[in-house]
Simulated assay, not measured.
Amino acid sequence: MKVITNAGRFCATNQAAYEEHLRVPCLSLGTYSIPAGRLDPQKPHTEDEIYVVLAGHAKLWTPRSTVEVQAGSVIFVPAGEEHRFIEVDRDLTVLVVFGPAEQTANEADPE
């Protein structure tokens, strides 16, 4: 067992910020913070993602739909799907779970 400290704490910067808290081969966990009025620069990932919104308000955009998100929202985004948070009108704090661990799908097999 591991107690994960600082997960879900808003990172007070002037831009979107991601802090990883846990990495094991099958998943990784981090906190994504976007200050109100700022842009989300993320690009599609090669891993599946689950977002758990802890605080704030925004919309999550994909080419197929846009949904409002706020504390309590839980959203699944499949690997490769273009997406980003838009219209962040209150500081957004999101727990992000990647499966497998973020960027491991791009790592070359050493053998």
Rank of each mutant, 00 (worst) to 15 (best):
V3M: 06
T5I: 12
A7T: 12
R9P: 04
F10V: 13
C11E: 02
A12V: 15
T13M: 11
Q15A: 14
A16M: 09
A16P: 00
A17P: 05
Y18C: 07
E20D: 14
E20L: 10
E20V: 13
H21P: 04
V24N: 10
P25N: 06
C26E: 12
L27D: 07
S28V: 15
L29I: 14
G30N: 10
G30R: 03
S33W: 00
G37K: 08
R38Y: 13
D40I: 15
D40M: 08
P41V: 15
Q42D: 15
K43L: 12
H45I: 15
E47G: 07
E49Q: 12
E49I: 13
I50T: 08
Y51I: 11
V52Q: 04
V52W: 01
L54D: 08
A55M: 13
G56K: 01
A58M: 09
W61Y: 13
R64C: 13
R64A: 14
S65H: 09
T66R: 03
E68D: 14
V69F: 00
Q70E: 08
Q70W: 09
A71Q: 08
G72S: 10
S73N: 15
V74G: 11
I75F: 05
F76Q: 08
F76Y: 11
F76V: 14
P78V: 08
P78C: 11
A79M: 06
G80H: 03
E82N: 09
R84E: 07
R84Q: 06
V88P: 00
V88M: 02
D89I: 11
D89H: 15
R90V: 09
R90C: 11
D91N: 09
T93K: 03
T93E: 05
T93R: 03
L95E: 04
V96Q: 01
V96P: 01
V96A: 01
V97L: 08
F98Q: 00
F98R: 00
P100S: 09
Q103K: 03
A105L: 08
A105F: 02
N106A: 12
N106W: 01
N106S: 11
E107F: 14
A108E: 04
A108P: 03
A108L: 13
A108R: 08
D109R: 07
D109H: 15
E111T: 12
E111R: 04
